[in-house]
Design a protein around this nucleic acid. Structure first.
Lengths: 216, 216, 216, 216
DNA sequence: TATGAATGAGGGTTCATTCAT
DNA sequence: AATGAATGAACCCTCATTCAT
């Protein structure tokens, strides 16, 4: 309601910056490169953002709003049990990653660059990351209550494992050339199953047996 | 006795650069910051390295030599079956990650910054990463032949999944404050079990459905 | 009205650079010295030139355009015989040398510094120098056809001698304190007569022996 | 008598520096380049010279001693009339230029770079140049007394013209590819005749006639 | 005498930011 | 809002010189 005017240029700057930051990092990207890629003058960038750092901030906000809030929204709307909700979460995450490859990746790329800065931006990144972890922890906690994942599972640790896995998945996809759509599906399913197995009720079968008995 | 002279300063520069690159990225770290942290003059850095980029190169070489070659060595020395070898690999990787936190992390930090550069350094990074992937693929291939992991498992894909998972694990550890040693063990075990389950023989239980019958 | 904008600063940089290069050579002059002499910030130089080398390039272009093209123009406009044309050329050259002392001298100063560089700038200098030589050769060739200079005169060699003489004249003027206007005229006349005598028709008197019968 | 010890290295440094200064100028040549070309360590240069500037000084001394003193010597030893002495001078100069191409050229190259410096070295260069001019002036003055060159010839001006011409000759040879030995001889003779004609007794024939009457 | 690691001033260049138009 | 010339700090790197060995 408030911000309504024509934000075409502003959005263009953000969209372009994501691409550039992804390719060359935050420090490695200059304002003039952004402005040229957008097709405006250097000074014009400063009509829309106070500083280069503010562009980064807006990207983080965009990530938090579109990805994180989106995931939370999607999951809250789902009324099923833990497994259903988890699958919704997983589907949302991987599909978002597929459709907003750059936004997801720039997040991880910048993490490495920004964390340790002790800047305001670092604080923001840590806060977003924390919100993500806690949301996932809550989801798992629910699964525990429903008896769908092992009681002795540490939900915080597993939240982290899941994030780690998803993070790593994206990075590897980025380094190696992007997989085909079919490969993509195989990956995603394999990841999901691996994650779920890691948390499943021990009664179903002993991990130990499965692993150790292989040596006849 | 060959070329051995006192490389103290050189090593210092590398060690310090790792820390600085980790904290601020490659572009974000200036040569004068490195020199000050080492306690030498700016010019002295150039007595030991031709350029800032060459420091980075040396770090990558160090990573490749210490971590990758170390892992390959360790595994080749092990004469057991796939599972034993895989555990050796896993142990080596996680322990190396624990003991050389910075070296491992700087690798991943710089990956995000460098990939896309189309620089010589990028080529080097991709080559190292490729060597790692192929090594792991070979390991899994062996497991397949021994009948210890499912015949239908795509070893390349799973090599990538494993790397992704380990990568992500490290990154998350870094973003969140470092876990205690005990947490560490739980993580590592959980990760390893998850990975192995994802690949185990389908006959034993029903992973099969999840992994193999992707296309209904 | 085409691209005309205010090139005051750009021109100032060139004018100042000529003086500085003349005094201290190209390598010996720093960009900050130029900027300070112009009265602008160091960075501003780079708003007008891509690099220090580009300033040099512009000076060469200026030299080629103002001096060389000017000479060619002046001579082509003259419809007289060889002697008339040669005198026009000589007058133009010496007057240009008198009125654009610095531009002429910086050319020669930089020649010594740049030649041997195997840089792009060297190529440019050689090309300009070559154009100058060929133009003069053409002029002499005309004189030969008109029968006003000896048939056996090698026009290329004499073109070079003339250039050498003019070049040396300028350099000596610079090293020794600049001569008065009256001395100037004596110089110029003496030079011109010496040059013309060296090429005149052998029949008239015995230069022939000196020039032609080189091999007894 | 005084300096007797083995100056091989010192001489090597000077010889090498001449080549390097010629190719890249004084400022453009670094001490390490010289040392590498000589095949010694950088520090060793400072065992033989106090500074880079001192190398230049030694080159100038060498030029003054070998070329200038040599010319003066040669001419004083000759007992003939002006024309004979002048020819001796000219022969010596051009042959020295042919045989010590680099030493001669580096002198002219460095002139442009150093003059204007207001350094001690500049003073030295001006002094050498002045000594050269005065020597030549004396030679011409003798010719005047012997009645072999025109009474109204200004010997200082003509000394300058001669130097200028020789200087220019060298530079042009340097810029254009070096002439063959035969071409060389033609040049040299043409130069000498041109110079001598410019100074000859007016009684022999009127310059004016020769030049002006060409237009019938 | 010879070495080469160490120094730090200074060079060319980039770039975020400002501001008059 | 849009522009781009201007700024000056900061960056990477070079180099003359010193000095302990």
């Amino acid at each position: 309601m408030t911000k309504k005017r024509d934000d075409t240029v502003r959005d263009s700057i953000i969209e372009t910056s994501i691409k550039q930051f992804l390719a060359k990092g935050f420090v490695g990207t200059s304002v003039i490169e952004i402005s040229r890629a957008v097709g405006i003058a250097k000074g014009t960038v400063y009509c829309h953002f106070e500083s280069k750092e503010q562009i980064l901030d807006s990207i983080l906000d965009k990530y938090a709003k579109e990805f994180l809030d989106g995931a939370i929204d999607e999951v809250s709307k789902c009324e099923g049990d833990f497994l259903t909700r988890f699958k919704v979460f997983f589907k949302y995450t991987t599909e978002f990653g597929r459709d907003h490859r750059e936004l997801m990746l720039v997040w991880h790329t910048l993490l490495g660059e920004i964390i340790g800065n002790s800047s305001e931006t670092e604080r923001k990144m840590k806060e977003i990351q924390g919100r993500y972890t806690r949301f996932l922890e809550g989801l798992l906690e629910g699964g525990k209550k429903e008896g769908m994942i092992g009681k002795n599972i540490d939900t915080l640790i597993h939240a982290r494992i899941i994030i780690a896995t998803l993070t790593g998945m994206l990075l590897v996809w980025y380094i190696e050339s992007p997989p085909t759509d079919d490969e993509n599906k195989v990956y995603v399913r394999a990841f999901r199953e691996a994650i779920l197995k890691g948390m499943e009720m021990p009664e179903r079968h002993s991990v130990k047996k499965a692993i150790i008995k292989q040596k006849p």
